[in-house]
């Protein structure tokens, strides 16, 4: 555990909590892509199956359970409790265009051709692109609530911090996971355009709206 990994995890946790609280407090999931949230629930489910097979640390187990629990709670709020506020018309990204290629790739390129390992790989690849329905929704409506942009910033920051974590672990622990690193770079790059808008607009007190 190093400072980048810890702050990355906390940033990820902050993102998840911000989104849950935003929906809960406003009693609305307007502007939130339910599809991205389903993909994240799928990501956590397929990655954390090792909860049943290996114990790493109390921290690791607790965080996994919190992430999974929050992911399903978010999906429940969007598709059940506050379904009336869900903006399905604007959430029109075709997720099969992500899930099918990612599924194929995880069968082809993995560390070990075993069910758990393929599912882990699938979760890593899927996480790198799971935010696309949300970004697509924002580009379609041309704007995002400020609290939604805080959520996205924390979520993007988390993977960027993990990149520094992997550099750290490469030098000090001999840790090197090519699959996680490449997917992590892709994931971080997808947020770059958003990071730019966040810094130039949201941090200066303006609402995030895209030019028509």
């Amino acid at each position: 555990m190093n400072i980048f990994r810890l702050t990355g995890d906390l940033s990820h946790l902050a993102a998840i909590i911000i989104l849950l609280l935003k929906i809960w407090k406003s009693r609305s999931c307007a502007g939130i892509s339910g599809k991205s949230q389903i993909l994240f629930a799928l990501v956590f489910t397929t990655r954390y199956l090792d909860l049943f097979t290996s114990f790493i640390s109390l921290y690791n187990t607790c965080m996994k359970l919190i992430y999974i629990g929050c992911a399903y709670a978010t999906v429940y709020l969007i598709y059940a409790k506050f379904r009336a506020t869900y903006d399905g018309n604007h959430d029109s990204f075709r997720v099969e265009f992500l899930v099918v290629p990612v599924g194929g790739l995880s069968v082809l390129i993995n560390h070990d051709f075993s069910p758990l390992e393929i599912l882990w790989t699938f979760s890593i690849y899927l996480e790198s692109v799971a935010i696309l329905p949300q970004l697509f929704m924002i580009s379609k409506t041309g704007e995002a609530e400020t609290i939604t942009t805080h959520y996205l910033f924390c979520l993007g920051l988390y993977r960027a911090l993990y990149l520094f974590n992997w550099i750290w672990r490469f030098y000090f622990e001999g840790f090197f996971d090519m699959i996680a690193i490449v997917a992590g770079v892709v994931q971080t790059v997808l947020y770059c355009d958003f990071f730019y808008l966040y810094v130039t607009k949201v941090l200066k007190g303006k609402k995030l709206s895209l030019p028509a």
């Binding site: 990994r5 990820h12 690791n60 882990w120 001999g174 840790f175 996680a180």
Partner: peptide, 10 residues
Amino acid sequence: REFTYKHDEL
């Protein structure tokens, strides 16, 4: 030095 991967992250 041997470089390895292991799934101990979140």
